[in-house]
Every structure is written in C-alpha cells, then in structure tokens.
Design a protein around this nucleic acid. Structure first.
Lengths: 194, 194
DNA sequence: GGCGGCACTTGATGTAGGTTAAGAAATTAA
DNA sequence: TTAATTTCTTAACCTACATCAAGTGCCGCC
C-alpha cells in the first residue's frame, strides 16, 4: 500500500477511522523527484507540505556570498516544506532538492486547510508536528551558539545515524555549519586523537 | 480590564464569544514577577505558558562554560515558555527571568489541553502561534549561520526597535551571539564608520 | 577506456570574534 | 549621598574556523 507509511506517521499522534483515512489520502498527490531535481526553488511560493515515502530531500538556503546552508534533511517518514513561504504565501527562501531519486506525497495548503475544518484531528496533528519542529530548531540554534564544530558533528551522528554513511560529507559540513575543507581536517584530527 | 490585552492577542487569529472568553479567562492565573526574579529555572519542569501583560522577560540557556545565550525576549503582548520542557514534561534547559517588574497570565498545560477539546479554536490559535515561532526560530538560525555580528545587530534593531534603548546592551550582545566586549567594540566601529 | 568533473584532502595564510585584564561610567542599594 | 555592584569601554593577545590554492582519487559518460 503506498499510503501505509504516511498513515502510520499520523497514527503516532491521532487515530483516524477508515473513512477519514480515505478522505485524507484522496487529498494526496504522489510525485517522483529525480536525484538533483528540485521540489522547490528560491523565490517560488511554497504551495505544498511534502511527506517523503522513499529517498531523501534536503532543504537549504544560499547566502549572499553564495554559500549553501542546509536547514534540514528529510529521509523517508519525514515532512518537509518552506514554512515561511507556506504560511505567508510569499516567495520563499529555501531550495528543496533530492539527494537521490525520491518519492513524496504532496498535500496542498488548500487541502491542508480543508482537513483542519473537516477533521479537526488534523489541526491537532499538525500542531504537534510544528511544536516538535520548533523544539528541534531551537535546540539547533542553541547548539550553533554554544558548541564547537566537533560537538555539533557528534550530535549530528547521534541524531541521524542512518544518514551519515550515505550522505556526501560536504552536506554534513554544510548542516553543522563549517566549510568542507575544515570538516575534512576536523575528521582527520578526530581519527588521530583516538 | 486586566484581560483586554490577551483577548486582543487571541483576536488576531480567532474570534471568541463572550461565553468562551469567560471560560478562557477563568483558566488564567495572574502573577507578578519582580525584576531579577525567575518564572522558571534550569532543571525545573515547565508547567505553564506565560503571556506577558506588562514588563519584560528573557528566556536563556547557560552553556557548559557558563556563558548565557538569550533565546528570546518577551515584552508585553508576547507568549513565552520552555517549549521543550512544556511538551515533554521533562526537566527544562531554560531560565526565564524578569528584566524588570513584570506581570504575566499563566495558562497551565492541563488547562491549555482542556481548551483544545472544549474550544477547538484554541488548537487553531496555538498551531498558528507555534508556526510563527518556528519561522522566527529558523530565520534566526539562518542568520546565525550566514550573517556577521554587525548584520545580526542591524536585524535586531529592525525587529525589536522598542527594546533597544531600555535593554542593557550585554543582553543584546547575548541575543545576537557575541561577547559584551566584542559588541562594545563593534558598536564603536559602527559609529566611526558613518 | 579515457577524460571531464566532482568530492575529498592537505597546506599556507587570513580574519571575525574570543579571552583576559583593568579602568571608567552608570545603576542600585542603603 | 555615598558605597557597592553592575555595566561598559579599551587594548593586547589568542583561536576556531575561513579562504585560496594545488593535488589526489573516483565515478559516470561519450
């Protein structure tokens, strides 16, 4: 069943009847994104929340000197969107790109809002999802203010153990907020230490 | 009316009937916090969302070398809590302190959850509130990754014009993520430039 | 099967911001 | 009002990380 993963994901916080499941899945729009293709690019208005069923996406911004900053990775079973743009419906600041061939289910903003009124449980679900994102985002801010690059890397390894091996290490460098060169050196030093 | 401010705050996103307003305000617990007193301290479980009606609070963490990092300021008309602890009901990581004599209205987690089921509009309200916090938090992360201290200071001035004058500048330094010494030097250089 | 490009490494040098310290100015307390 | 604290400034020196540059390994592609 193509919807098993997403229905299970919902089930973590809310319980749906058969009927509600059908209403929900009817709103979803499957889409395939090839490696290096984009789900969303800078300046576009974000019209969908995306749920990854296979593969992996990355959301990132590009600063004015051209450096990319990875905001989040979204492997299977994760939601992703440019929240700023999705909420405000203004041109967004994120690029969302596939790191490998990826399958997503799209839920349009309009459909998402229909769900809120039709099935209030969805408002509950997305409130909790957003709360968890907020806590993660705050924690990452705290980490970036108070930890060294090496400590941030160790945290990353703990939090995303599955991602580490099959992610080019310049992506990890970008996520923890250092250059690929420094990251490479740092890894070397970490090995030498133990 | 002591509840005018908070009812107006709600009105930005949801409309309540007289009756609903009364149910809501009955759940609130007014509290006064003297300057330098704490609403919450590190290691405590956060049991309330707080709405500031007068004065100003700051939420901050202390890292392992004893440096304070301001996560947010909450002047009048703002909500504040240690979201990590409030959600998980585990010991928190934030201190929330009054920068001046401050009045808050406390909404306990239990009452907040009662509101969600009694008056679903509250789930809507807090979802939106949380979404906005998430966007702000993400933007701050992006800023801390891609802007210089000077640019972050300029952003701060734009976003919190009212706070600047009546906030000790070491608090601003902590918020933008530099030492008070560097902040002082930077300000000097900024004046010299123009 | 060779080659064009990308990911990674390594080295030399540069810089934003930190640390330490000590004095001046401003607030608070009494 | 004065004493006590806290905040702010200035200066010399330090460090984590960036930048630039050159070289190596590797994988996909005509």
């Amino acid at each position: 069943m193509p919807f098993d993963l997403i229905l299970n994901n919902l089930e973590k916080h809310i319980h749906l009847t058969r009927e509600e499941q059908e209403i929900f899945t009817a709103y979803l729009q499957p889409k395939k994104i090839k490696r290096k293709q984009f789900l969303l690019t800078y300046g576009e208005v974000c019209k969908y929340s995306a749920f990854v069923t296979a593969g992996c996406l990355r959301g990132y911004t590009v600063d004015k000197s051209g450096i990319e900053h990875v905001l989040n990775f979204a492997p299977a079973d994760w939601w992703i969107a440019d929240m700023y743009s999705l909420i405000s419906q203004k041109p967004g600041i994120q690029n969302i790109e596939a790191l490998e061939d990826t399958d997503v289910l799209l839920l349009s903003k309009a459909n998402q809002e229909k769900l809120y009124t039709q099935i209030p449980k969805f408002e509950h679900f997305f409130r909790i999802l957003t709360e968890n994102s907020l806590v993660a985002s705050q924690q990452r801010l705290i980490d970036s203010l108070s930890l060294t690059a090496e400590e941030r890397y160790n945290n990353f390894c703990k939090r995303y153990p599955t991602l580490i091996d099959h992610l080019p290490q310049k992506q990890i460098a970008s996520y923890i907020g250092v250059t690929p060169e420094f990251f490479s050196r740092m890894k070397g030093e970490m090995v030498r230490k133990r």
